[in-house]
Design a protein around this nucleic acid. Structure first.
Lengths: 244, 244
DNA sequence: GCCGATTTGTCCGTATGTATC
DNA sequence: CGATACATACGGACAAATCGG
């Protein structure tokens, strides 16, 4: 693993912020000061700051000093952000988790599936459905369709652990981009069968199409979440006129 | 308005991609080629490409050629969040829209509000609630709390038009960062009173805390959306970059 | 499988512009 | 108004990953 300077600096600053060394709303060192501290160019510092901006830790404005806007959150919610698998998110949130594979089949994409997933009609796919348990409660119904020609041999054992780990480590496949869409849908009988929805008659549905480095869509994923634990967070830093 | 080179290049490339000059899954020019085309440094091109990556238009990987992954949105869904505002989304879909102010008050933050909004207890706030109509249907209940000490004089007339326009143009306030969170909640009696929820007993709730350049949170916003029209889109990449 | 060419990734060093205090 | 701090751009060097022969 090569040492990437800006990444090292970014992680160091991030840790310092999380440790409270630079508290919420305090003033951050200037780019020049940081360049001196880390003995590097200002451009390298800026690259590191860009990461801190992106993850919503600092706020930067021309002519002004940089401000820390990170606040620690006590979260019992399940946060989804970036490209993160269930296992990664669960581990980050320090939850006990397990997975039950409730379906593992090979199918051929028909008209309905093609419409929904963007896979062409006739495509050979793995159809994997898994129920995700957090602290013993069934919270998520994950429905995945994998392009067989891209992912090769999968089996139920892999599905039970982590398919992404397998794809990245074993197949050396690089997951690059993922287009996701969040909607709220009425619960189906399948949802009700597997999940504990309590009073809710809806679910948060996070569907996504994942592309590898060849630009090929190799997965369609649909995560159907119990509303009570679902939470999606996001920090927008642009001064675009999103509101009006 | 000064001409920002990288931004001009970014917009030009974006337009070309949207116009189909570089179709989905096609190969993009190399950085050197683009530098030659636009007569600028490679670093400037990279800055423009960073924007295209961030908005999910291209996919870049070391050693490989850059790929176009932009696809036009053909669907008639009503997209919220990502980049578009209510008004922009309504305009794109050629829908008729209007806004009705259903509440305009001054309040003092109590324990419950403080907990939810992060404003300290005792803070003086404007409480504005608006119902957004699309094609005559009430789809969104917008609840906003504004810090009176930061936004000064508001009135119902401004709320009916655009509060943000007022803040930015009249007060010269710069909106810098916004932390948003998406959840699914059970419908309250207030929701049922204003919105047509049909069979759903839940809503998609987009809540956010907006900070100005002083690092002061001056707004808490909560958009409660009818599920049937709600759709949130997002493109995630493994390494987002803002500037290089 | 090796090797060289290509392409993107990182970083240095400098200069100038622009917003804010 | 000057000083400060962030923003953009130029120009170059080398590293790392990939691809084609």
């Amino acid at each position: 693993m090569p040492k990437i300077k800006f990444d090292t600096i970014y992680k160091d600053l991030k840790n310092k912020i999380e440790a409270g060394e630079y508290p919420f709303n305090s003033i951050f060192p200037t780019e020049h000061e940081l360049a001196a501290i880390y003995s590097c160019m200002r451009s390298t510092i800026r690259r590191a700051l860009a990461e801190l901006i992106q993850c919503g830790y600092i706020q930067v404005r021309q002519g002004q000093r940089t401000r820390v806007i990170y606040e620690p959150v006590a979260r019992n919610t399940f946060l989804i952000g970036g490209i993160e698998s269930f296992t990664e998110a669960a581990t980050r949130n320090k939850f006990k988790h397990c997975t039950r594979v409730v379906r593992f089949d090979k199918i051929i994409a028909d008209t309905e599936i093609a419409e929904k997933t963007d896979f062409p009609i006739g495509t050979k796919l793995y159809d994997v459905r898994r129920v995700r348990y957090l602290n013993g409660k069934p919270l998520i119904l994950d429905k995945n369709l994998f392009l067989i020609s891209a992912v090769g041999d999968l089996n139920e054992e892999i599905a039970k652990r982590s398919i992404y780990e397998y794809l990245e480590n074993e197949l050396k496949m690089k997951i690059v981009t993922s287009k996701r869409r969040m909607t709220v849908e009425l619960a189906t009988t399948e949802d009700k069968a597997w999940l504990e929805l309590d009073d809710y008659n809806c679910l948060a549905v996070l569907s996504g199409r994942v592309f590898n480095s060849d630009g090929i869509q190799f997965e369609y994923t649909e995560s159907r979440h119990c509303p009570d634990y679902f939470c999606f967070e996001d920090t927008a830093t642009r001064n675009k006129k999103r509101f009006l």
